[in-house]
Simulated scan of single mutants.
Amino acid sequence: MRLLLLTLLCSLAHLSLAQFQFFEQMFNQGGQQQQRGHQQQQDQPQNVASDSEWYQRTYEGAHCTNYLCPGTLACVHFPHHCPCPFPAVEDKVELGEGSAICVSKGGWKEGEAMRKIELARKGVL
Rank of each mutant, 00 (worst) to 15 (best):
L125E: 11
N66K: 14
H77A: 08
F86K: 06
A100P: 08
V93Y: 04
A74L: 05
A62W: 04
V48A: 14
Q33P: 00
R2C: 00
R36H: 07
Q21H: 12
N66H: 15
G71E: 12
Q40S: 11
M26T: 14
A120Q: 03
R121C: 07
H14I: 13
L6N: 12
E112S: 10
G31K: 10
L119K: 03
C102I: 03
E118W: 06
P83S: 07
R121E: 04
G111R: 12
G96A: 11
T65P: 09
K122V: 00
L17V: 13
L73E: 08
C64F: 02
F86P: 00
F20M: 15
Q35G: 07
R121F: 08
S52V: 10
G30L: 13
F78I: 04
T65V: 08
G106H: 08
F78E: 12
F20Y: 14
S104Y: 13
E60G: 03
E110R: 10
V76Q: 05
G31C: 07
L73K: 03
T58F: 03
E112D: 11
S11Q: 12
L12R: 01
N28P: 02
Q21P: 09
H81K: 02
H63L: 10
Q41S: 08
P85V: 09
S52G: 03
G71M: 02
G96V: 13
P87V: 01
A74F: 07
N47Q: 15
Q25S: 11
E60A: 15
Q19E: 15
D43S: 11
H38T: 07
M1F: 11
H38F: 10
H14D: 04
I101E: 01
E97M: 13
A13R: 07
T7A: 15
K92H: 00
G37I: 01
S50Q: 15
P83R: 04
C84I: 00
L8P: 08
F20D: 15
C82D: 00
A88R: 06
G107Y: 04
D51G: 10
E118F: 03
L73T: 05
G31S: 07
C82A: 05
E112K: 07
L119Q: 08
C69N: 02
L119T: 00
E94N: 11
H63C: 12
D91S: 10
D43A: 14
A120S: 09
R121V: 04
K116W: 10
G71S: 09
R36F: 06
Q34R: 15
F22Q: 14
G96Q: 11
M26P: 03
A18M: 15
R2D: 08
I117H: 05
V89F: 01
P85R: 07
P83W: 00
H80F: 01
Q33Y: 02
S50F: 14
G123A: 00
